[in-house]
């Protein structure tokens, strides 16, 4: 039972990372029908920027904000910087290619991904970087027989808070309605007075910003970051997006959480080495029986 609860908490933590990254994928996919391969690298870039803020601002942060304040500051700085990068990448690499169709855009996204990844490598070097241990709050908590760290709880609360805000923005606000309407039918939405360019601007600031904040949280959680980490997380988050039903934003959130929990249970009860195989097998099984994902709506074939 203890193992079960601990793994559930671990799984929800990782799952909320996947969910936050998956939202960025799903928003872009919903609007542009583009698999944004560069999204995982936005996440990695955010992680590195957060690392830099923590390392170079360490004296200032600890004296003025305290440890938790430092964490929030790193997340906010990373979010702003990466949101800017996201908009630039959209303008430079995606916008000129929309008219050419979907597949050229995929290659362009891969090009952007290679570009960002290697920019990180050129700036921060090809080796692993470690988040400074002294700047990360390290308090253990014991509930019955379950060991967790305070950081884990904070990360969990923070990610669910962010997911909640996103859910509210997308489901309840006018702007969220605009996003959903554009995802459904771009042309009709723009005829109804929705500014397509503003929607794109919004998703390319929000998605990368969320990814960057996740990057800082992952850096704090695992302590170690590398310039290629965007690929692994990006792949998992993309899997989560499909699992939940592509373009369906609440679906992407649940897909991410389910994926994280499955992965942790697979690691605990089956084998740590085979956990990814387990995750992909579940995904394939789900898609065999529900070809449009868990929460995806059945799309009628256009003839």
């Amino acid at each position: 039972m203890e193992v079960f609860l601990e793994q559930l908490i671990n799984g929800l933590t990782i799952g909320s990372f996947y969910a936050l990254i998956a939202l960025g994928y799903s928003m872009v996919y919903g609007i542009l029908k583009l698999i944004n391969f560069a999204h995982g690298d936005f996440f990695a870039l955010g992680s590195y920027i957060g690392y830099t803020v923590l390392v170079f601002g360490s004296a200032f942060i600890t004296s003025h904000f305290g440890l938790w304040g430092g964490m929030i500051a790193a997340m906010l700085v990373a979010a702003f910087c990466v949101a800017f990068v996201g908009v630039v990448v959209e303008r430079a690499a995606y916008r000129p290619i929309y008219p050419a169709g979907r597949l050229p855009a995929v290659v362009s996204a891969l090009g952007a991904s290679i570009f960002i990844q290697n920019t990180i490598m050129v700036i921060w070097g090809p080796r692993y970087q470690a988040y400074p241990a002294s700047l990360i709050p390290n308090i253990h908590i014991q509930l019955g027989n379950i060991h967790i760290t305070l950081l884990q709880i904070v990360i969990l609360v923070l990610s669910f808070f962010l997911l909640g805000i996103l859910y509210w923005v997308i489901q309840k606000t006018t702007f969220g309605a605009a996003i959903r309407a554009t995802a459904l039918d771009k042309d009709t939405a723009s005829l109804m007075g929705i500014n397509f360019n503003r929607v794109i601007f919004f998703i390319f600031t929000l998605g990368p910003a969320l990814g960057a904040m996740t990057g800082v949280m992952v850096g704090m959680y695992y302590r170690q970051i590398s310039f290629t980490m965007g690929w692994n997380y990006g792949l998992k988050a993309f899997t989560a997006t499909i699992l939940g039903g592509i373009g369906n934003l609440p679906g992407a959130m649940f897909g991410g959480l389910i994926l994280g929990v499955l992965e942790m249970f697979g690691a605990a009860y089956i084998s740590a080495a085979w956990k990814d195989v387990f995750v992909f097998l579940i995904l394939i099984l789900v898609l065999i029986f529900r070809p449009t994902g868990l929460f995806g709506e059945k799309v009628a074939e256009k003839v």
């Binding site: 362009s108 891969l110 090009g111 290679i114 960002i116």
Partner: peptide, 9 residues
Amino acid sequence: MLVFGTVMI
């Protein structure tokens, strides 16, 4: 690889 990515785009 930076050049490579740029050329792909």
